[in-house]
């Protein structure tokens, strides 16, 4: 393992004068870097524009390099899946039984809902449309929890839109370029999402912290949160549509309630960006009532 001396010839050692020049150049460059950091702090919009221009132009390279990561994951999944086939099958059978029960419940509720709506002449709100995007870069820095997505202005992505994986909400759009955009994950320290506790209909704010955990903030102190309670998005503030699945309360301690998200941010591959502009009317007006209602609302 150990390389003996002389294994590689070393380029000639610098003269003192050259070393002085290197030192001067390095100092100059570090000074320039510090100036850049200050500039970035002073005008974040400029940095944002640079960043998005760069990622837009590099998106072909990034999408190629993202593929091997997915391939490795697929192989790992295949291997681990092979060993857990039996238990997986058992679990799925049990889940299927449970889901069938829920399916019948849902059909009953839907029928009831439809008849109630007919009585009320309720117009179902227009459903949201979705933009599919591939995740092709995540920061390795460990400081920020954001990801690059392969859709931008051209596909109709706008700042602030919600991003969903197959399991639930994963984050929101932070910066938008022509063909790429950057998403801030729920677990980022600066992420704040209005949510509702599904059972009690209590409002709260879902916040990320430095450990990448999600916790409920701004919850009324007299509210008791139970482990296992579902958390969904809320349209307070007009940023998100109501009712997107977010996660379940996994732990309640003296510091507050911790939420386990449905979506695993480590395994994001293809995500859906929710274009809910149809859902939210301009100036925040509620959808107008129309006659001839009664069609079942789209899910």
């Amino acid at each position: 393992m150990v390389k003996r001396r002389g294994a590689i010839s070393i380029a000639g050692f610098a003269h003192p004068a050259r070393e002085l020049a290197t030192r001067f150049a390095s100092l100059l460059l570090i000074l320039l870097a510090i100036m850049l950091m200050v500039l970035g702090k002073a005008s974040p919009e400029l940095v944002s524009a640079w960043r998005i221009a760069l990622t837009d132009s590099l998106s072909p390279v990034l999408s190629i390099l993202a593929s091997p990561g997915q391939a490795v994951l697929d192989v790992a999944d295949g291997v681990s899946g092979y060993f857990s086939l039996h238990s997986e099958n058992e679990r799925l059978l049990a889940e299927n039984r449970e889901l069938k029960t829920w399916y019948h419940r849902a059909q009953d509720v839907e029928a009831e809902n439809r008849s109630l709506r007919e009585i009320l002449h309720f117009a179902p709100p227009p459903s949201a449309s979705f933009i599919a995007a591939k995740v092709f870069a995540v920061p390795g820095g460990g400081f920020l929890n954001s990801a690059l997505l392969s859709a931008g202005h051209a596909q109709g992505v706008k700042k602030g839109q919600a991003v969903l994986s197959g399991d639930g909400l994963v984050g929101r759009i932070l910066e938008v370029g022509e063909s790429t955009s950057r998403m801030l994950l729920l677990s980022d320290m600066s992420s704040r999402i209005p949510v509702i506790l599904a059972a009690s209909r209590e409002r709260a704010v879902l916040a990320g912290n430095s450990d990448g955990k999600l916790f409920l903030a701004h919850l009324r102190p007299d509210i008791e949160v139970g482990v296992g309670e579902r958390v969904v998005s809320s349209d307070v503030g007009g940023a998100f549509p109501d009712g997107l699945p977010v996660g379940v309360v996994s732990f309640v301690g003296p510091q507050g309630a911790v939420v386990e998200p449905y979506a695993d941010p480590a395994r994001l591959d293809v995500v859906q960006i929710v274009d809910f502009s149809a859902l939210l009317q301009p100036e925040g007006n509620p959808p107008k009532q129309e006659t001839g209602a009664g069609a079942p609302a789209s899910p």
Partner: peptide, 11 residues
């Protein structure tokens, strides 16, 4: 710029 750190930090 790529991973979203303040520009100049890694430099």
């Amino acid at each position: 710029l790529l991973i979203g750190l303040p520009p100049g930090l890694s430099s």
